[in-house]
Design a binder for these strands. Structure first.
Length: 581
RNA sequence: CGGGGUGUGGCGCAGUUGGUAGCGCGCGGCGUUUGGGACGCUGAGGUCGGAGGUUCGAGUCCUCUCACCCCGACCA
């Protein structure tokens, strides 16, 4: 590609409202342009990257026996009604009616379509197992798009679906995907970790996320470096202290003016926060009032809480709602409240004689004890694991890190095959629901995440495998027809003939500085400079994007020297990623 | 949806007590330049997000509205 004709220009400055470095660099490099909130066009350079990411995905999916296909973006709502998600998924699913007033949806994922296909395509255990996948547009009307390309509303996802006869088969398919994903993200040059995760709206029995480290990540993960425990904070557990054994003391009301927070209360009474009980109030999607009680030194994990009470959404309750159940904001406790589902964290069960609110302003109760002073509907783990908390397996302190979720694998089980009636006959002629798994990777997100992890002050450092081009060929010719230009033209043609992907900066109206700056910004792994200065000695200059020094090679051998250099760069990438040569 | 912020040529910005819109970059032309974002001359490009209002007069003040960004509940 000649840069003089490349569609999409580079920018010296990023638009003012762009914050994330990946977003800035991809906009400046002329790879993406926004159309609306969370909606982007991929320009030729960006599209090349995404296509290469997708090519890596295809190769690794095919390697585990995946069969590529293509399912529609627009679905009749019927299948979503059959699975129940038409009703359970909120406004993030875009819905509309066709001209005949039929409900339609824009696909946000494809479990329903796969299950629907299985009804007719899969009848016998002999056809199992299967892995099918496609790369298709998804639309999710996110409450808030953010972070440039990291979180968008319209995106392309590789989603694959495993179809198995039983759980053991699903385990195999799950492991195959795990391995494929591991290779995909390594080949993309990402530093990542696999963590246990919440199943969310997908449902199912197990889920893991592939998390790429980034301070700009939206997720927090907890990692134990001594035993390799790793989990999304949403589901992370931690080793609890042994229960405190202490005789129960009589309940006692104390005046505690101006202590609506745990901090203020602990300071006023001169006790540690761990001797207080914190009350957190939610209004659930079903309308139920959820009253969570946790020790003052811990935080409520809403994902865990949602799962315990089996509610899709929890919204912090208003002061009026809190008073409506007989509690008092800032001075609340479960003692004496009614018409609320009370969920107590294990920490509160295991610590007697806590200080809790008296449900009137300015007063607390001392020596509050579960079972004696109030009853719980659930006693469970609803505490959030934080940086430094002890690992649930080995007790060593864990560290919290931010990360971007680049891939997710789910064991769905029979949730969709049962609701849509996707069944097969076993060897005995008995009918069973197909056991499904579902597995997703957002290709644009992967590209943006690579930029988050691999950039310097000048621009992007693409790994060889997904770089838009292998080589930035920079011509410093003064005229488009002089000897330098002719030499560069010839090298461009020779490299293309040799199968090297070249972005040829043939512009004669730009200074050397502009061309070098653009080459660094765009971030192809190798820069080749053809200039009058080196041409005099019959040489051209090679410089790896991550190298500080250039080397000179004879023009006559340039193609083979470039190929050798590219092979070395590719090999170095693979070695750094822990992949075989 | 709650909270905060921004809308002025393609990009980055300025615009005073309300007085008829400017700078840098970029873009076109001509010339001089050419190894790390060159220089001169010249030219094009703006219903100041939109609507309504106040005023002799609105980019500026008021009301409404739209869009976008950031922080919170969701996810590839």
């Amino acid at each position: 590609m000649r840069m003089s004709h490349l569609f999409g220009r580079t920018l010296r400055e990023a638009p003012g409202d762009v914050e994330l470095i990946s977003h800035q660099l991809m906009v400046r490099a002329g790879m993406v342009r926004p159309l609306g909130a969370g909606i982007f066009s991929l320009l030729p350079l960006g599209w090349r990257v995404v296509r290469k990411v997708e090519q890596v995905i295809r190769e690794e999916m095919d390697a585990i026996g995946g069969q590529e296909m293509l399912m529609p973006v627009v679905h009749p709502a019927d299948i979503w009604k059959e699975s129940g998600r038409f009703y359970s998924v909120g406004p993030e699913m875009a819905r509309f009616k066709d001209r005949n007033d039929r409900d339609m949806v824009l696909a946000m994922t494809h479990e329903e379509v796969v299950a629907d296909l299985c009804r007719t395509e899969i009848n016998s255990y002999r056809q199992l197992p299967q892995i099918v996948y496609h790369l298709q547009t998804k639309f999710r009307d996110e409450p808030r798009a953010r972070g440039g390309l990291i979180r968008v509303r319209e995106f392309t996802m590789k989603d694959s679906y495993s179809l198995d006869a039983d759980e053991a088969g699903l385990d195999v398919s799950y492991q195959l995907h795990w391995k494929a994903y591991d290779r995909i993200f390594r080949r993309c040059g990402l530093k990542f970790i696999v963590v246990g995760a919440d199943v969310g709206m997908m449902g199912g029995s197990a889920s893991h996320e592939f998390m790429a480290f980034s301070p700009n990540g939206e997720d927090t993960i907890l990692i134990c470096s001594s035993c390799n425990y790793a989990a999304n904070q949403e589901v992370a557990t931690f080793r609890r202290e042994p229960p405190v054994s202490e005789p129960q003391q009589p309940l006692e009301e104390v005046a505690t003016p101006n202590t609506p927070t745990i901090e203020a209360l602990a300071e006023f009474l001169g006790i540690p926060k761990s001797r207080t009980a914190k009350a957190v109030f939610y209004r659930a999607g079903s309308g139920r009032f959820i009253f969570a009680v946790i020790r003052g030194d811990l935080e409520v994990n809403e994902t865990k809480l949602r799962k315990i009470v089996q509610e899709g959404t929890l919204i912090p309750a208003t002061a009026e709602e809190i008073r409506g159940i007989g509690a008092e904001p800032g001075y609340g406790s479960p003692v004496g409240v009614k018409e609320a589902t009370i969920v107590v964290d294990e920490s509160v069960r295991d610590t007697p004689n806590l200080v809790a609110g008296a449900n009137k302003p300015g007063y607390h109760l001392k020596n509050v004890n579960l079972g004696r002073d109030y009853q719980a509907d659930f006693v469970a783990d609803i505490a959030s694991a934080e940086d430094g908390f002890p690992c649930p397996n080995c007790g060593e302190p864990m560290r919290a890190e931010r990360a971007i979720e680049v891939g997710n694998i789910f064991k769905l089980g029979t949730r969709y095959s049962e609701s849509l009636g996707a069944r097969y006959l076993d060897a005995e002629g008995k009918e069973h629901p197909i056991v499904m798994g579902s597995y997703g990777i957002g290709s644009g997100r992967v590209a943006a995440t690579i930029v988050e992890q691999r950039h310097d002050e000048r621009g992007i450092l693409w790994p060889y495998e997904v770089a838009p081009f292998h080589v930035s060929l920079v011509s410093l010719a003064k005229e488009s027809t002089d000897e330098t230009a002719q030499a560069a033209d010839r090298l461009y043609a020779d490299l293309q003939a040799a199968g090297v992907e070249v972005l040829y900066d043939d512009r004669v109206d730009q200074s050397a500085g502009v061309k070098f700056a653009d080459a660094d910004l765009i971030g192809n792994p190798l820069r080749v400079t053809v200039s009058p200065r080196t041409l005099k000695q019959g040489q051209v200059e090679l410089k790896g994007r991550s190298e500080s020094e250039a080397t000179l090679v004879p023009l006559a051998d340039a193609v083979s020297a470039i190929q050798a250099k590219l092979a070395a760069i590719a090999a170095a990438d693979r070695a750094a990623a822990g992949l075989e040569a």
